[in-house]
Write a protein that binds this DNA or RNA. Structure first.
Length: 490
RNA sequence: GGCCCCAUCGUCUAACGGUUAGGACACAAGGUUCUCAACUUUGCGAUCGGAGUUCGAUUCUCCGUGGGGUCACCA
């Protein structure tokens, strides 16, 4: 049975790269009707961040990456200690009494001398009973892995291919810390074995410590899972994805108003391509639902090179996903976003939205649907429906600068009259009647229709950019439109 | 610096050893249009360099160059 897991540590916000790792692990498990576990790697007491675990779970849920079971390493401490001691008995580990400070000094010396430092403890060949005596006497200690000398470890990775490492280049790493907690190296091996994990996905940053893990499996006599090292996601500026250009955490993207579906779709394509063949010149499919991805997923389509995180492309995906929302979805998701991630300064907007009701909100959002790329643009885009300043210089714009104040006043007056003479609400007026009025007026007065439209736009929306004017005015209603226009009457 | 890895348009990527090296994002120009968008058409644009192997290398091998990862009692 295929068993995969996602194993983040609760040391802060979940990185977007972590979501991608989880996505692949999830996909492999689901595709093969296997199991997908969440394992919280909380063995570092110093870096523990409260609330981090809850956030990880919340994100997995938001992205649709549902897990079958959850484990926590901190709840399994005795187990690690037991295995560490077993390793000592087997001669694959030893008690070490060197202090952190001593080690640091050795490293610094080697660095100054321009030499590479590969740690070999003075205690590695100490008699075990002797060592146990010192431990029993209360001396602080760690348990270190004992490596064979000049031994080549060969490993095969589905994505990275075959790699080999020499133990002479590798430190004898700590397996059990002096606080009794295991390090990652010990804990992963034990847990993956005990959870019967068949396939591991993790970042390439683990590659250098891979031989340690291989040797541990050997020492225990356990069968190894297939381990796949995923390339890191790079920043456009080089190096790891950095915060300078926007969010890097999963929540961060949700806060900015990206849809989980869009993010996950973008993430799929970052290092994976669909096994579909196309005709020469034919457009390729790049929209995939999670289910479609799971069905198509295969290790062989994973890429080895490190991709650069292209925010423009993500934004484009998000725009497309927003465009494809139904009116209900659009308003529901926006309201959910406002409630979940809307900051304090949006409280006023929230109350406005509640006041106008869902039908009116939907009309407003529909007009914005093709105009925004993420939800965070929406509050400022729709603010004009609720607040109106009316302080613009109407002929201060490219389309209106030819118009004198007199011309503007005349038009405003007759337009207001036109509205007031209309017996019903604007909803009942046809677009044609409205547009004909403006165009006829322009013609009679030798004006450009475009400049009149712009004039109205400026007066009604406080902005030279807005959704189609007539639809906006229909939403605002006759009374409100007239009120806004009258602010410009002298 | 040691060890490990990578290399196709600016970016994500496609291409049984044989293609005018394809698609997408971005960018530019045109169309549409009451503004901004959206939509649409077209354009720009790549096999890192050098040796091999081969009738023929983007594809295989080696060497350079460039980039990345990692060298904790962190994961």
């Amino acid at each position: 049975m295929v068993v995969t897991r996602f194993a983040p540590s609760p040391t802060g916000s979940l990185h977007i790269g972590g979501v991608r790792t989880a996505l692949y692990a999830f996909a492999l498990a689901r595709k093969n009707q296997g199991r997908f576990f969440l394992r919280i790697e909380d063995t570092d007491q110093n870096r523990f961040v409260l609330g981090s675990e809850a956030e990880i779970e919340k994100m997995l849920k938001a992205f649709g990456l549902h897990y079958d079971e959850k484990f926590k390493q901190s709840e399994r401490l005795e187990k690690y200690q037991k295995y560490a001691k077993q390793l000592v008995q087997l001669g694959h580990a030893y008690y070490c009494f060197s202090t952190k400070e001593e080690l640091e000094e050795m490293r610094n010396k080697a660095k100054e001398a321009g030499k590479n430092f590969v740690f070999r403890s003075p205690y590695r060949d100490l008699d075990v009973t002797e060592a146990e005596k010192r431990v029993a006497a209360g001396e602080p200690y760690v348990i270190r892995q004992k490596l064979p000398e000049n031994h080549v470890v060969v490993f095969d990775d589905p994505v990275q291919g075959t790699m080999s490492f020499n133990t002479n280049d590798i430190d004898e790493t700590v397996l059990l810390k002096s606080d009794g907690f295991p390090t990652y190296h010990l804990a992963v091996v034990i847990d993956d074995h005990e959870m019967q994990v068949s396939d591991v996905f993790r970042g390439v940053e683990w590659l250098p410590s891979l031989p340690k893990h291989v040797l541990l499996y050997k020492a225990f006599g356990w069968e190894m899972p297939v381990i796949t090292h995923l390339p890191v996601i790079l920043d456009p500026d080089g190096g790891k994805l950095s915060k300078r250009r926007g969010a890097v955490s999963a929540v961060g993207f949700l806060e900015e108003g990206y849809l989980p579906e869009a993010i996950i779709n973008f993430l799929m394509l970052l290092g994976w391509s669909a096994p579909i063949t196309y005709e020469h010149g034919e457009k390729e499919q790049e929209f995939f639902t999670l289910d479609a991805f799971v069905n198509m997923f295969s290790m062989k389509d994973l890429n080895k090179a490190s991709p650069v995180f292209n925010r423009d492309k993500l934004l484009w995906f998000n725009q497309k996903y927003i465009q494809n929302l139904t009116a209900d979805e659009l308003s529901n998701k926006f309201i959910a976003w406002l409630q979940e991630y809307g900051k304090k300064d949006l409280d006023l907007l929230k109350s406005h939205i509640i006041k106008i009701g869902p039908d009116q909100l939907q009309k407003i959002l529909l007009l914005e649907q093709t105009r925004i790329k993420m939800f965070s643009e929406l509050p400022s885009a729709i603010a004009f429906y609720f607040e109106h300043n009316g302080g613009l210089v109407l002929n201060g714009y490219k389309q209106t600068k030819q118009m004198s104040d007199k011309v503007i006043q005349d038009f405003l007056n007759s337009y207001i009259q036109f509205l007031e003479n209309y017996a019903h609400e604007l909803n009942e007026m046809s677009h044609e009647i409205w547009e004909t009025f403006v165009r006829d007026y322009a013609e009679k007065n030798e004006l450009k229709a475009g400049s009149l439209f712009m004039l109205l736009r400026l007066a009604v929306t406080d902005s030279p950019f807005s959704p189609p004017l007539f639809e906006v005015m229909q939403i605002l209603g006759k009374i409100e439109v007239v009120k806004r226009l009258k602010k410009y009457l002298q």
